[in-house]
């Protein structure tokens, strides 16, 4: 009996996805509890303690103002580290041989790994939003847009992390991009302040930071106020997503650092 030819290896994608999710749940404490705890600390320090001395920004109380930025901060770092680690690990241990020898296409491999990393990030984002509600009262003006920003950012940065995981051939390299580039950009991306508050030239410079657009757009979905236009924010995410997809396509086409 001849089986019908496979067009999309759904079982393969599911296997990778489940494997990655299981890895996450196995280390529940560090993978879920630690981002939630550290974000909660931000709320206690910046939201409750310092925030009470701060005025409103664009009509939003400071404690509520920092929520979207903090969620984005976690989303960026967790998406990158999760996806990077997910593909780096089998590469490093050698178990990648199995994925390479399986009837799974590039797209399916990416959907499995990146899908799982993005799922984790979105779940974490929601968890942090729920935690924030304990400390600060806030509302969400455009919930669907909020979700769209959340998912798009999680997917884009998981793709980016996946690329880092493939590019890195050592643990140092795995850490260096998130640590040296992403974290500074994220911190300077307006999590804790509005770009409007920066003096003159710094405001212009800040506009070169892609994270500014993410946080601004995300914050708009909460409070209807933003530093830059929402369309601009979406366009930036779109461009980043396209770049990452292009990068991954190139990597697999050329076999770069995966196949010998």
């Amino acid at each position: 009996m001849a089986a019908s030819p496979m067009h999309f290896n759904i079982h393969g994608v599911r296997a990778i996805y489940r494997f990655e999710m299981a890895r996450w749940f196995r280390t529940l404490l560090s993978s879920i509890a630690s981002p939630v705890i550290s974000t909660s600390l931000y709320f206690v320090v910046f939201g409750a303690a310092i925030g009470s001395r701060m005025g409103d920004i664009g009509g939003v109380p400071y404690g509520a103002f920092i929520i979207p930025g903090l969620v984005m901060l976690t989303l960026l770092t967790e998406s990158i580290s999760n996806a990077a680690f997910g593909i780096f690990m089998p590469k490093w241990s050698g178990t990648i041989y199995e994925v390479l020898s399986a009837p799974v296409s590039t797209a399916e491999i990416v959907i499995g790994y990146v899908g799982a990393a993005a799922t984790k990030s979105v779940l974490l984002g929601c968890l942090i939003l729920a935690t924030a509600r304990v400390f600060v009262p806030y509302g969400i003006e455009h919930p669907l847009w909020m979700l769209a920003f959340l998912v798009l950012t999680a997917v884009s940065f998981s793709l980016f992390g996946f690329i880092i995981g493939i590019w890195a051939e050592s643990w140092e390299k795995l850490q260096i991009v998130p640590l040296m580039i992403v974290t500074p950009l994220a911190f300077l991306g307006g999590s804790f302040y509005s770009i409007e508050m920066l003096p003159g030239i710094w405001r212009e410079i800040a506009l070169f930071n892609p994270v500014v657009y993410l946080i601004s757009g995300f914050r708009w979905s909460f409070y209807g106020v933003s530093d830059v236009g929402v369309g601009m924010s979406l366009a930036m995410i779109g461009i980043f997503l396209a770049l990452c997809l292009g990068g991954i396509t190139w990597i697999f086409r050329s076999g770069y650092k995966i196949k010998r």
């Binding site: 496979m6 290896n9 393969g12 296997a15 489940r18 299981a22 050698g94 041989y97 020898s101 399986a102």
Partner: peptide, 28 residues
């Protein structure tokens, strides 16, 4: 394929890793 070198996951159970392989190769 059974490769020359011992390459396995560490934290997975035997059942999980063998089931994973079946799925990866597109089998229900």
């Amino acid at each position: 394929l059974v490769p020359q070198e011992l390459l396995t996951d560490a934290f997975e159970s035997v059942w999980a890793t063998v089931s994973f392989s079946r799925g990866l190769f597109g089998k229900p």
